[in-house]
Simulated scan of single mutants.
Amino acid sequence: MANQEEDDGYDYLFEAAYEALEESGFTGLLVSGYEDMPEPAPVEGHMPDLTATNAKGVACIFEICPREAFATQELAERLLAFARHAEAIKGHLVLIVPEGEEDVAWAFLSEHAIPEDRLDVWEA
C-alpha cells in the first residue's frame, strides 16, 4: 500500500480500487499495464485502467484519476470514448478520484460535455 505522501497519486488510487473491486465481488477483473495480469481491450484507441463485471452482470470500466489528471485534454478524450462505449454495451464508467475531489471530477465532466447517464465517481 502507498504511504501517506502518495495519497493523491495514481498508485494509491489503483491499489484502493483494485482491492475494493476484489472484495466487492466483481469478476473478470482486467488490468492495464501490470505484468502477469490480463489486460482489457482498448476502447477507441484508449486503454482502460481496469475493467470488471459487477454482481448484476454489468460490465464496468474504471478510470483512475488523480487530481493532476483533470488538467489534461487527453483525459477528456479518454472519458468521452469510455462513456460512448459504456452506453453501447449498456455498461458503466466509474472514475476513481482522491477523497475530497468528487466535485472537481463532476465539474470536469460537465465542462467537457461527457455524458453522465452511465457514469459515476467514487472517492478512494
Score class of each variant (00 low, 15 high):
84 R>S: 01
83 A>E: 13
102 E>P: 00
107 A>E: 11
110 S>F: 01
80 L>F: 08
96 I>H: 06
88 A>G: 13
86 A>W: 11
102 E>S: 07
100 G>V: 01
98 P>W: 14
111 E>A: 10
100 G>Q: 03
82 F>M: 02
89 I>W: 13
96 I>S: 07
97 V>H: 05
80 L>A: 11
105 A>C: 08
108 F>P: 09
98 P>S: 15
86 A>E: 06
104 V>Y: 05
112 H>M: 04
93 L>K: 06
96 I>M: 13
99 E>T: 07
82 F>A: 06
90 K>P: 02
106 W>S: 03
93 L>T: 05
81 A>M: 07
113 A>V: 00
80 L>C: 07
92 H>F: 14
97 V>L: 07
94 V>M: 10
98 P>V: 12
110 S>D: 06
109 L>Q: 02
108 F>W: 10
111 E>N: 08
92 H>Y: 09
88 A>D: 14
106 W>D: 06
105 A>K: 01
89 I>G: 10
85 H>F: 14
105 A>G: 03
104 V>H: 12
111 E>M: 05
97 V>Y: 08
105 A>D: 07
106 W>M: 06
104 V>I: 11
109 L>S: 03
85 H>K: 13
81 A>G: 07
84 R>K: 05
98 P>E: 13
91 G>H: 04
93 L>G: 07
107 A>C: 01
94 V>C: 14
94 V>H: 12
108 F>H: 08
89 I>M: 15
88 A>F: 08
109 L>V: 07
99 E>W: 02
84 R>W: 00
94 V>Q: 11
86 A>S: 15
80 L>M: 10
81 A>P: 04
103 D>E: 11
85 H>Y: 15
89 I>L: 14
106 W>I: 03
85 H>L: 05
103 D>Q: 09
101 E>W: 15
96 I>V: 14
109 L>R: 01
113 A>C: 01
108 F>S: 13
87 E>T: 08
87 E>F: 02
90 K>N: 14
81 A>F: 09
102 E>L: 01
94 V>L: 12
88 A>E: 14
98 P>C: 12
113 A>I: 00
110 S>H: 01
92 H>V: 02
80 L>R: 12
113 A>Q: 10
95 L>E: 05
99 E>G: 09
83 A>D: 08
85 H>I: 00
108 F>L: 14
98 P>L: 14
90 K>R: 15
106 W>T: 11
90 K>M: 13
113 A>N: 08
87 E>P: 00
85 H>E: 13
97 V>Q: 06
108 F>T: 11
105 A>M: 04
89 I>C: 15
99 E>Y: 11
97 V>I: 11
94 V>F: 14
90 K>C: 12
102 E>C: 01
84 R>I: 00
92 H>W: 14
107 A>K: 06
81 A>T: 06
107 A>Y: 02
94 V>A: 12
97 V>M: 06
108 F>M: 13
103 D>F: 03
108 F>K: 12
103 D>A: 12
93 L>I: 09
109 L>H: 03
85 H>M: 04
106 W>H: 11
93 L>R: 04
82 F>K: 04
95 L>K: 05
107 A>L: 08
86 A>T: 10
88 A>I: 01
87 E>K: 08
94 V>K: 09
100 G>T: 01
113 A>L: 03
95 L>W: 09
95 L>A: 04
83 A>P: 07
112 H>E: 08
98 P>F: 15
108 F>Q: 09
